[in-house]
Amino acid sequence: MFSYCTDPSTLEGLTWLSCYLTTGKHLSFYASFVTVLVLLAITAPTALLFGFGGATAARSRIAPLRWFGKGYTAIVRGVPDIAFFLFFVIALDQAFEYLRHKVKCPDWEEPIRQGNDFIVCQAAKLPLSTAPQWVHETYGFLLAVLTFAIVFGAFAANVLYGAMNAVPHAQMETAEAYGMSHRQAFWRIMVPQMWVYALPGLSNLWMVLIKATPLLFLLGVEDIVYWARELGGTVNPRFTDYPHGDWRLYYFTFLLIFYLGFTRVSEIVLERLMKKLTHGQATTGGEAQRKAAA
């Protein structure tokens, strides 16, 4: 990186450190922080959307939709995350490729499953094996987002289902007495009021999601924990210009601070959000706000 870094063995102290911390390997480490943050930024709203869909389905008056919603939350919540992540991503990928194979190569004669192998025609590969590495990485990343969204969506669905039920029934009855249709009452009365009941559960989920990102490496996405372990491990002078002993403690301490800082910031934001949502609600929190103002 810096011009004085050409021969690290002659460097000492801070200059050595400045060179060490700017190697290509470290830059990948810093980039993985961005990966994790982007993943969270995309996954959280997607999971919430899945959760909302699941909760609405579970409350539906149409029986098959209700079964689907209840089945989704029950199955996904019951299966261990790690099993989901190992099995699901490969299965999902194969499902996509299978569909593309059926569309793109209709006159393919060989079976798709040959023993242990899963073989689709070249044109059905996802991404194409000719695609550059970054396409593969982005695809893996999107699979990761989808898997996270499905898993956390199920938990969010359960939280939102509870929150919808927690909205006082009298509110809905009043809405319908005013002549609102079922749909209008749902969107105008229930949805705006349910968030205050959902937020404690959702904020828990957010905290768990932040800490679940190391599961990313199972999906082939290199996250911050992977790089911390890789960089902190002992390196022999034969393979590096910057030999050092077992420094995992320092790297993991750094991660600890990062995660604690991140969760603390989240807590502050969520607390403010809670205050805002409580405003004017018929809950004890809302009542307290009203009294304080008066």
């Binding site: 190697t23 290509g24 390997k25 830059l27 990948s28 393979f239 590096t240 210009d241 910057y242």
Partner: peptide
């Protein structure tokens, strides 16, 4: 096989 300083 290992990852070198350049990250390769």
């Amino acid at each position: 096989n290992f990852v070198n300083d350049k990250g390769e």
